[in-house]
């Protein structure tokens, strides 16, 4: 069973790498376009190991995100839970999509995530409405095929 092959350890260390990539220093121009590594990873594991990395794991990762880059606790946690719930709901359909179609769905999901963060921020009284804040959506979707091929390779190698 592929479930057993995808060990908890692998999920944990890929998450740690994703957290690191989230705050690793980059030149300003690249920093603005930084993809949402954690969420991409969560979507990947939800599609491939739904029993190991589910809603609660997404929620925990969201809390860590809040502690890492956020303003208030719960902001990213809420957005992650909603996105991962949607992913899980359509998991069986999403995982048989061809890679490009999958990337399109990921684009939608990541856009929804950023929209949620935007709305939550708006309610809390922030007002950053620069169009630059939507740039990571595109970059994340473009990176999806790359991420999938890397992680599939990792999974194959650590059988």
């Amino acid at each position: 069973m592929s479930q057993d092959r995808i060990g908890v350890l692998r999920i944990l260390w890929t998450s740690a790498v994703a957290l690191l990539l989230t705050i690793a220093p980059l030149p300003t121009a690249l920093n603005v376009a930084r993809p949402d590594w954690i969420l991409l990873l969560l979507i990947y594991w939800t599609l491939n190991a739904p029993l190991r990395a589910g809603l609660s794991y997404a929620w925990l990762c969201g809390l860590l995100m809040d502690a890492l880059v956020g303003d208030m606790l719960g902001e990213h946690a809420l957005a992650f839970v909603i996105i991962i719930a949607l992913t899980q709901r359509f998991q069986l359909r999403l995982r048989i999509f061809p890679l490009l179609q999958q990337a399109a769905m990921v684009l939608l999901l990541i856009w929804l995530y950023h929209f949620l963060i935007y709305i939550i921020g708006g309610i809390a009284g922030e007002h950053i409405s620069s169009w630059l804040r939507w740039l990571p959506v595109l970059v994340s979707a473009l990176l999806w095929p790359v991420l999938v091929s890397i992680l599939d390779t990792v999974n194959r190698l650590s059988k």
Partner: peptide, 30 residues
């Protein structure tokens, strides 16, 4: 396809219930 091995009986609370629960905690935290 074999990887979705969620048991049909005894799944625990439904996906939506769990999502709503976690969302409620998040909002309370915020």
């Amino acid at each position: 396809f074999s990887s979705d091995i969620r048991p049909i009986i005894g799944r625990g609370p439904s996906l939506i219930a769990r999502a709503l629960f976690l969302a409620a905690i998040s909002i309370a935290l915020m």
